[in-house]
Design a binder for these strands. Structure first.
Lengths: 246, 246
DNA sequence: TATGACCTTCCTGTCGACAGTTTGCCTGGG
DNA sequence: CCCAGGCAAACTGTCGACAGGAAGGTCATA
């Protein structure tokens, strides 16, 4: 029922199938999924020769796939330098969450305005499922549900530009999900937020919904901040090696 | 003093220089400027063979340049189909302006919070210049000032994600500038808006500034809407040919 | 041990070529 | 006059090759 397939989600969010050839789609999907799943780590090199060998292609489609991921903020490319897995600084992350919070507030307001009662009912059903996942502690499944929820809402609202931007921001936060929802208690908080939200939607209270989602986003960011602080404190030994992650 | 150089503005907004080789930069700049200046019209084919001939290159850098413009919404690419100059529908335009309005409101609020008195002073100076341009009826110069103003504000606010998204949306609206500010009276309205805005900034009134900028954006959209309605009415003859512009 | 110049290796950006698909035209039939 | 089918031309996606720049290691020097 819930989609765990990172590759598939990427394909949808990036609209890969319609935009590019299967070859490029496949490579972008593999690399993108690798980044999101943590198989490819921030700052890691993504040289096109290796990738082309892996997929038995030339470097041309690899290059194109990496450019696609660059615009989603998953990959960083500079001229004449090796592409790397994006390594957003804490400041970048803050910026992303700040913008995302505002746009989600906008989404919520539009959603309240445009959602049908059926939309709301199916949303409530999904959130009930999410509650179960949260209780079971299935972080991954919960996260994908979360993504799916946003996809649904953006489609219902029907603002293509908003959808595209939110999809892109969602991908970037997806990179960080191991930093946020794995923190103890986050899952429960998050599902509580969702339930308060759906209630605001049902009461067609745009202002409340916007405020709730905005505040939930801010809280998610703070969880990441704390997690990063913990990790930085824990990893105080690696003397010389400083990655741009902080 | 004011920058009329479309190519240069594009280079800045897309950060072309740092991201790509000079060759790609040049092509993307030429095509992008062509679209914005109206030399290349919505829906027009952008086949890579022609372009590569024009620049005495192979098709590889042309392809890359077009992909860059695709992510800015200036070019549409589908697999195995010729790239075209983007031809946003009225609905697309509405969506863009809606999102842009929200993000500009966010920008204004952050700006009020973070701008120094010197920032405000230089902003006021710039707006005084814009008043002169508006009085002189220099639509183009006025428009570029407008763009420059937004660049300045995003830099002062310092949220990279917000800046990137607003830059991208600005480019898309730049395509449409002949539809909006050329309407009689628009220029005067626009500069009035700016002056009200700067006053709100100076009074550090975030709520007012947000509301003003949001409302100004909505008004700009309505001007485009009316202009398009006029053009559609005027061009009621071309019987068969319906471009996706409406 | 730290620093810097050099050198090797690897990688990127660009090219021209080719296969396969799309586009537009042309023809014939309704 | 309009439409459908087939054909030729044109264009895209991919490839392997090459030149020049970047990254990393080595060695000499302090």
């Amino acid at each position: 029922m819930i989609d765990h397939d990172t590759y598939g989600v990427l394909e949808r969010l990036l609209r890969l199938r319609e935009r590019r050839e299967p070859l490029v789609t496949q490579i972008a999907g593999w690399v993108g999924a690798g980044i999101i799943e943590g198989r490819l780590r921030p700052g890691e090199d993504l040289n096109s020769v290796d990738l082309s060998r892996r997929f038995n292609t030339s470097r041309t489609p690899v290059r194109e796939a990496l450019m696609l991921l660059e615009q989603e903020g998953l990959v960083e490319m500079k001229a004449r330098r090796r592409p790397r897995v994006a390594a957003p600084s804490l400041r970048d992350i803050r910026d992303i969450y700040q913008v995302r919070g505002h746009l989600l507030a906008m989404l919520a307001a539009l959603f309240v305005e445009r959602a049908t009662d059926e939309d709301l009912a199916s949303l409530r059903a999904e959130i009930a499922r999410m509650r179960k996942l949260a209780d079971a502690g299935d972080v991954d499944a919960y996260f994908w549900s979360h993504v799916h929820l946003q996809e649904r809402m953006t489609e219902i609202v029907g603002n293509a530009t908003l959808k595209q931007i939110l999809d892109s921001l969602a991908l970037r936060t997806l990179m960080l999900r191991h930093l946020s929802l794995t923190r103890p208690g986050r899952l429960a908080y998050s599902v509580d937020d969702q339930e308060r939200l759906i209630q605001a939607y049902e009461e067609r209270d745009a202002a409340l919904a916007s405020a709730l989602i905005s505040s939930a986003t801010a809280r998610a960011y703070r969880a990441i901040e704390e997690q990063l602080a913990l990790e930085a404190a824990g990893a105080a030994k690696p003397s010389r090696r400083r990655r741009a992650t902080a």
